[in-house]
Structure formats: C-alpha cells, structure tokens
C-alpha cells in the first residue's frame, strides 16, 4: 500500500514537473510572440514614414534606420525573458 502511494506520488511529481516545463515553454512563446507583435505594430508606422523620407532624400537613410529599429528593443526584451524562462 505504502509502496503504491510512493509510486503514484512519483508519477504525479513527474507529470507536474513536465507540465511546469510546458507552462514555461508557453510563457516563453508568449513572451517572444507578443513582443514581436508589439514591435511589428510599432515599427509599422515608423518604417512607412522612414521609407517615404528616404525616397525624398537618400541622406535620411541612417536616421531613418535608427528610428525604425528603436522599437526592436521590445522584442529583444521578450527574447531575453523567453531564454531566461527556458534555461
């Protein structure tokens, strides 16, 4: 009887650990995915405006690129959180 309980507890622990791992993976996926969407939304307007400006004056390229990639930090945060969650 006692041995059975221990065995059940062990399988339970294993499944709990596995589901915890799964939750972590979901969390990491959400972190990367949602921040990616956020970055995309933010870069959408800036990128369009920057391309317009570059079309008028090519010298604007450097500054345009700079502005466009500023929201990229958001997705990097997501990646960092995701990696820290997983490892």
């Amino acid at each position: 009887m006692a041995a059975e309980v221990v065995a059940i507890a062990a399988t339970d622990l294993a499944s709990i650990q596995a589901s915890q791992m799964g939750m972590k993976a979901i969390g990491a996926g959400l972190a990367v995915g949602l921040t990616g969407v956020g970055t995309g939304v933010a870069e959408m307007g800036i990128g369009a405006a920057a391309v317009g400006a570059i079309a008028e004056n090519k010298d604007f390229f450097g500054l345009g690129l700079l502005f466009t990639v500023i929201p990229e930090t958001i997705v990097i945060f997501g990646l960092v959180v995701g990696l820290l969650l997983l490892f």
Binding site: I76, F77, L79, L83
Partner: peptide
C-alpha cells in the same frame, strides 16, 4: 537599462 539589455541581441539573435 534598455540600452544595456539591448546588447542581449548579440546572444539572442545568434542563438536563434
């Protein structure tokens, strides 16, 4: 903080 953490892309992009 955000600028320093931004260098994490060196690792993150490489890992991907």
């Amino acid at each position: 903080i955000s600028h320093v953490l931004s260098y994490a892309r060196l690792v993150a992009v490489g890992l991907s």
